[in-house]
Amino acid sequence: MDSLLMNRRKFLYQFKNVRWAKGRRETYLCYVVKRRDSATSFSLDFGYLRNKNGCHVELLFLRYISDWDLDPGRCYRVTWFTSWSPCYDCARHVADFLRGNPNLSLRIFTARLYFCEDRKAEPEGLRRLHRAGVQIAIMTFKDYFYCWNTFVENHERTFKAWEGLHENSVRLSRQLRRILLPLYEVDDLRDAFRTLGL
């Protein structure tokens, strides 16, 4: 685990949702873990991680939370803000982990979509996460503002959007929607068949 708060310049560089993210070879993951008790929730931990020694950050987080003694009788909500969406292998590990821990839910807000040039399996990884109940969305100004005030050593500076933040968020949201769209259509068809008694 690194220091509790991320350096301001590092956050702006790593999380910037630019179309061509040249040189950004690491994934950063800011997280919040909450325990839900009926209508209220309690923050248990927050911080950030990054890839280390060739190990992807998603797997580092799974190792980290596996060391906790999570009460199977309580519900936990984990929220990630990531600089890149998970690769196919990490998505598979996360989905398997969630299946083994049904009392834990995960939301992922990502700055950019990761696509490995040689495999093109990453969209299927995102669909697999979605099927496992993970809520996946692209970061918007509101999410960047929250991260800036929660995870960044900002020295009381106000978060300022860079040129193109909104447009890139919209573009990436549409792309993510197209990736997940087949799932929505299949769910709609299943509901229609059930309604018709087929």
Rank of each mutant, 00 (worst) to 15 (best):
L113P: 01
L113N: 01
L113Y: 04
L113M: 01
L113F: 14
L113A: 07
L113H: 05
L113G: 10
L113D: 02
L113V: 09
L113I: 02
L113W: 02
L113E: 11
L113T: 02
L113C: 04
L113Q: 05
L113K: 05
L113S: 12
L113R: 10
Y114W: 05
Y114G: 06
Y114N: 00
Y114C: 03
Y114R: 09
Y114P: 08
Y114F: 04
Y114L: 01
Y114V: 01
Y114A: 03
Y114K: 00
Y114D: 12
Y114E: 00
Y114M: 00
Y114T: 04
Y114Q: 01
Y114S: 03
Y114I: 02
Y114H: 01
F115D: 02
F115S: 03
F115H: 15
F115A: 02
F115Y: 15
F115I: 00
F115E: 04
F115G: 04
F115P: 00
F115W: 15
F115L: 07
F115T: 01
F115Q: 09
F115R: 09
F115V: 04
F115C: 08
F115M: 13
F115N: 08
F115K: 14
C116R: 07
C116Y: 14
C116I: 09
C116V: 15
C116M: 08
C116F: 13
C116W: 07
C116Q: 00
C116T: 06
C116K: 07
C116D: 00
C116A: 13
C116S: 04
C116L: 08
C116P: 05
C116E: 01
C116H: 05
C116N: 05
C116G: 10
E117H: 10
E117D: 14
E117Q: 12
E117Y: 06
E117F: 08
E117C: 15
E117N: 13
E117W: 03
E117T: 14
E117M: 12
E117R: 06
E117S: 12
E117I: 12
E117A: 10
E117V: 12
E117K: 04
E117L: 07
E117G: 10
E117P: 05
D118M: 13
D118L: 14
D118E: 06
D118Y: 08
D118C: 03
D118W: 00
D118H: 13
D118V: 02
D118F: 02
D118T: 04
D118N: 13
D118K: 02
D118I: 01
D118P: 15
D118G: 03
D118A: 13
D118R: 14
D118Q: 03
D118S: 03
R119Y: 11
R119F: 10
R119H: 14
R119P: 05
R119L: 09
R119A: 11
R119C: 11
R119Q: 11
R119I: 07
R119G: 15
R119E: 11
R119K: 11
R119M: 10
R119T: 11
R119W: 11
R119D: 13
R119N: 14
R119S: 12
R119V: 08
K120V: 06
K120C: 13
K120N: 12
K120T: 07
K120P: 04
K120A: 08
K120D: 06
K120E: 10
K120Q: 09
K120F: 15
K120I: 02
K120L: 07
K120Y: 15
K120S: 09
K120H: 13
K120R: 15
K120W: 14
K120M: 10
K120G: 06
A121G: 07
A121R: 13
A121S: 10
A121Y: 08
A121F: 09
A121P: 15
A121E: 07
A121C: 08
A121I: 02
A121L: 11
A121V: 06
A121H: 09
A121N: 12
A121D: 09
A121W: 10
A121T: 03
A121Q: 12
A121K: 12
A121M: 14
E122L: 03
E122R: 01
E122V: 00
E122F: 08
E122K: 00
E122W: 01
E122G: 14
E122P: 06
E122D: 00
E122T: 07
E122N: 15
E122H: 11
E122S: 08
E122Q: 14
E122M: 03
E122C: 11
E122I: 00
E122A: 12
E122Y: 05
P123K: 04
P123N: 07
P123M: 11
P123S: 06
P123C: 10
P123G: 05
P123D: 03
P123F: 01
P123R: 15
P123V: 06
P123H: 08
P123L: 09
P123A: 09
P123T: 05
P123I: 04
P123W: 02
P123Y: 05
P123E: 06
P123Q: 13
